[in-house]
């Protein structure tokens, strides 16, 4: 599980992506939960990078779920437009674990 505490600047997300992919690969993980509760602004660039992470982990055999998006941020995301079907949100850690264990 990864927790994002700051803004989704290019370097922060790239770093996140590297760490997530390395962890998935080295530990043969089947699920990744990315907590976005520390993020205030998600623009289309940031969203794309998050979706890319989900697609990359899937290629490595792991599903990525997102959680913790703040209500104020949801309001902006909805206006921003269509959210990719690869961007799957779970309510919290419990829901995420339930979703992952259903699949195994």
């Amino acid at each position: 599980m990864a927790s994002v505490q700051s803004e989704l600047g290019d370097s922060a997300v790239d770093c996140l992506r590297r760490r997530v992919l390395d962890q998935v690969y080295e530990n043969s993980l089947c699920g990744v939960l990315i907590d976005l509760s520390g993020v205030e602004i998600i623009d289309s660039f940031g969203l794309r990078k998050l979706v890319d992470i989900a697609k990359m982990t899937r290629l490595l055999g792991a599903e990525t779920r997102f959680t913790g998006i703040r209500p104020e941020v949801v309001a902006s995301l909805v206006d921003l437009g269509t959210v990719s079907s690869d961007f799957v949100v779970v309510a919290d850690l419990d829901a995420g674990l339930a979703a992952f264990s259903e699949r195994t």
């Binding site: 995301l77 779970v90 919290d92 829901a95």
Partner: peptide
């Protein structure tokens, strides 16, 4: 539809 998208983004 916007409202349903918003609830989905909350994981509901």
């Amino acid at each position: 539809i916007k409202i349903t998208k918003a609830t989905r983004l909350m994981g509901a």
